[in-house]
C-alpha cells in the first residue's frame, strides 16, 4: 500500500483501458474514486467493479470538452466526498489522420478532447486544490508527445500540447503544494482505443507498436501503477515531469 487511504481521486476517461485500470488501482490503494466519462455503460461498470471489491466509487457522466460539465464534475465530487486529492486527466482519443487529408473538424475534435479537456480539468481541479494547499495531478500524454509520429500529426500535436501544459502548470503551482506530471504511454495494446485502430486502420496500428524494445505488449495496469505512484507522497519531489511508460521506446 502506498498510502491513499481517505484520499479522493478523480479519473477521466475511466470507462475503459488505462482510465479504468487507474480507477481500480486507486481503489486498491484505499482511495475513493470518481469516474468521469461520456460512456455511461463503461463508466458505471468501472464503478461497479470497484464496489464489488469493497471500494467506494461514483460515476459522473461528463463531456470533458465542455467547461460547464467539468465544473459540475468537480462540484459533485466535493459534494459527495468532501475533497479532491488526486486527479488523472486521461480522457482522449487516437486517430490516424494523414496531414494533408485531415479536415478542420477532425483537428478541432482531437484538440478539444485531448488538449482543451486537460486544461479545463486542471482549471477546475486546481481551484479546489489551491484552496487546500495540496494535490497531485497526472495527465495522460503519450510517447507521441515526445517524438514525431508520422500518420498521426494531429494526435501528436495534441499530446505535445499536453506535455507543455503539464510543465507550465507544474512550475506555476509548485509553490502551492500541488504536483503536476504526465505519463507518456506507448505499446499499451489491450485498450478499446488501440483495438479500434486495429480494426479501422491496421497499418497505422501496427506502426504504433512495432518498435518496443521489451518486445511485448504493455498493459493498462502498468500505466496505472505509474499514475497512482506519481499521485502518492512517495513522489513528493517529482513535478513537471513527462514520464514515458513505453518498454524502452524513447530510449532508442
Amino acid at each position: 500500500m502506498i498510502g491513499l487511504e481517505n484520499k479522493v481521486a478523480l479519473v477521466t476517461g475511466g470507462s475503459s483501458g488505462i482510465g479504468r485500470a487507474t480507477a481500480l488501482t486507486f481503489a486498491r490503494e484505499g482511495a475513493k474514486v470518481v469516474i468521469a466519462d461520456i460512456n455511461i455503460i463503461g463508466g458505471e461498470e468501472t464503478a461497479r467493479m470497484i464496489k464489488m471489491k469493497g471500494g467506494q466509487a461514483l460515476f459522473i457522466k461528463t463531456d470533458v470538452t465542455r467547461a460547464t460539465e467539468v465544473e459540475s464534475l468537480i462540484d459533485q465530487t466535493i459534494q459527495k466526498y468532501g475533497r479532491l486529492d488526486c486527479a488523472h486527466n486521461n480522457a482522449g482519443m487516437l486517430e490516424g489522420i494523414p496531414l494533408m487529408e485531415g479536415t478542420e473538424a477532425q483537428w478541432d475534435r482531437i484538440m478539444n478532447l485531448n488538449l482543451k479537456s486537460v486544461w479545463l480539468c486542471m482549471k477546475y481541479e486546481l481551484r479546489h486544490m489551491t484552496r487546500h494547499g495540496a494535490g497531485a495531478i497526472v495527465n495522460t500524454s503519450s510517447v507521441a508527445g515526445l517524438v514525431g509520429s508520422p500518420g498521426t500529426a494531429f494526435y501528436a500535436a495534441s499530446k505535445w500540447g499536453v506535455n507543455g501544459l503539464t510543465k507550465s502548470a507544474a512550475v506555476e503551482f509548485a509553490k502551492s503544494g500541488i504536483r503536476i506530471n504526465a505519463v507518456c504511454p506507448a505499446g499499451i495494446m489491450n485498450t478499446t482505443m488501440y483495438i479500434a485502430q486495429m480494426v479501422k486502420n491496421p497499418a497505422f496500428a501496427a506502426q504504433l507498436t512495432s518498435v518496443i524494445p521489451m518486445e511485448r505488449d504493455g498493459f493498462p495496469e502498468e500505466v496505472a501503477e505509474v499514475v497512482v505512484w506519481l499521485c502518492s507522497d512517495a513522489a513528493s519531489y517529482i513535478t513537471g515531469h513527462t514520464l514515458p511508460v513505453d518498454g524502452g521506446r524513447t530510449a532508442i
Binding site: 499499451i188 505512484w229 514520464l243 530510449a251
Partner: peptide, 9 residues
C-alpha cells in the same frame, strides 16, 4: 514490479 514497463528512462 510496479515500474514493469518503465525502461531506459
Amino acid at each position: 514490479d510496479a515500474a514493469s514497463f518503465v525502461n531506459g528512462q
